[in-house]
Write a protein that binds this DNA or RNA. Structure first.
Lengths: 233, 233
DNA sequence: CGGCCTGTTGATGCGACTCAATTCAGGTGG
DNA sequence: CCACCTGAATTGAGTCGCATCAACAGGCCG
């Protein structure tokens, strides 16, 4: 068994719980269950009736849709501190995707019933949850826009720029973005396959727009990237 | 000016407000503003700071993403009784898509600030809103799955089957689904263009899977459709 | 009647997926 | 420590789905 962790402590840093009173945090910590998953372990399956949602404490999780013939699309890579599986808790629907741990991971699991009960008593929590879902919806519509209107090069360019903005707060030559995992996963996230991603990266590099090195992409020509992200060429 | 409508009456039939007390409904009706839009009128623009959300009372509305070069993707067709523009209200984000009336339409508009204030006092309303957002997210992930993993024929087959199930509660030979609007719009909704949709419909017809007639599709071979929707052939 | 929008059908080209071969890095076990 | 294996990444050749461009038919409305 895990050495007992301070669940209340963990909750303090989570966006979902900002502005929640200390005593309420303790109540929430009470209902949370710490769970561990090995690399490649399935946290929940698409189509399974939702029993609650998770907060990722440590590790890395992918949310995937997969097709009968083995292709898969990564809806989201979940980083520590983020929640996942929330949506299925509030409507009578099943998990819309499968969650798989990409590294040994630890989560806090909130069972549906007690959480909903608590939610009814906490407007601040409800408000935070609405904001969380809203941001996820925003993200999903962005992905839809990319998939339906843009080609792979534009999606990749946008991805690199957004990650750069996210990690450094700005976009400038010389700044680098870390790939959270393998290029194959990135390909699945961008709605393509590793071969195509490899070629596209090679083309960007040959055009002097980026440098690629060991799971790290360095931006050398932001303007050109932005042009491509908009759909240019 | 419109002859004054009974806003309270309208709210009663809306999913978002089920289980809300009568007196609360009156308060909500107070804050709602009736607005009218002509065919082709823009209700809000993508990127504009959200000021509130709408309930469609009458008419038809499309939520679209459009690219610089004129292509557009329809995220959702909004039918009377449904809400739209909700997501942007709860996080500090802009409207993620543009809303356009496809027919002369009437909405009830709920301004952000008073609605949020009211929401804090009504757990039932918060709960309903969470459920609404959850269902929309489910829908978005379905679309993402289709776009990333399936080809046009599979998307069309799935669309026809789902609409059939929705309108008749079951799927059987002889049942028909109405197209809400033009085939060009349906194409944009399926992430393709009208030419490709036309060809695909023609192929389905020649294979004896459907009959097409005047904005109506009649299913003749459900099994074959289901096979294609799963990715077969 | 003459525009306009929608829908259909044909020919062509391009982007990206498929299949296949090779290299490379990391981890394992002898 | 090296041989081995596995998964990731890269590169090439071939194919396919679908968008593009273009021409044309039908319905609706002013």
């Amino acid at each position: 068994m895990e050495p007992s962790i301070d669940k209340g402590k963990i909750l303090q840093g989570i966006y979902l719980f900002t502005g929640i009173r200390e005593t309420d945090l303790q109540a929430l910590a009470q209902m949370a269950v710490s769970r561990n998953f090995p690399r490649q372990g399935v946290i929940f399956w698409e189509g399974k009736e939702a029993q609650g949602f998770h907060i990722l404490v440590k590790g890395l999780v992918k949310l995937v849709k997969s097709s009968p013939d083995g292709k898969e699309f990564i809806l989201r890579l979940v980083m520590p501190g983020e929640t996942f599986g929330e949506a299925a808790v509030f409507a009578e629907i099943a998990y819309p995707a499968t969650a798989v741990a990409l590294e040994d991971s630890q989560t806090l699991f909130f069972p549906k019933a007690p959480f909903l009960q608590y939610l009814a008593a906490s407007p601040a929590l409800a408000r935070n949850m609405l904001a969380t879902l809203s941001k996820l919806m925003y993200h999903l519509t962005r992905q839809l826009e990319d998939l339906s209107l843009k080609e792979v090069s534009a999606r990749l360019a946008r991805y690199v720029l957004e990650r750069c903005k996210e990690t450094h707060g700005r976009i400038a030559p010389g700044l680098a973005v870390e790939l959270p995992t393998t290029k194959t996963h990135l390909a699945a996230y961008l709605g393509t396959i590793s071969e195509t991603l490899s070629r596209t990266l090679a083309r960007f590099k040959s055009l002097g727009m980026i440098e690629v090195d060991k799971g790290k992409i360095t931006i050398t020509d932001p303007a050109a990237l932005q042009d491509i992200a908009r759909g240019g060429k």
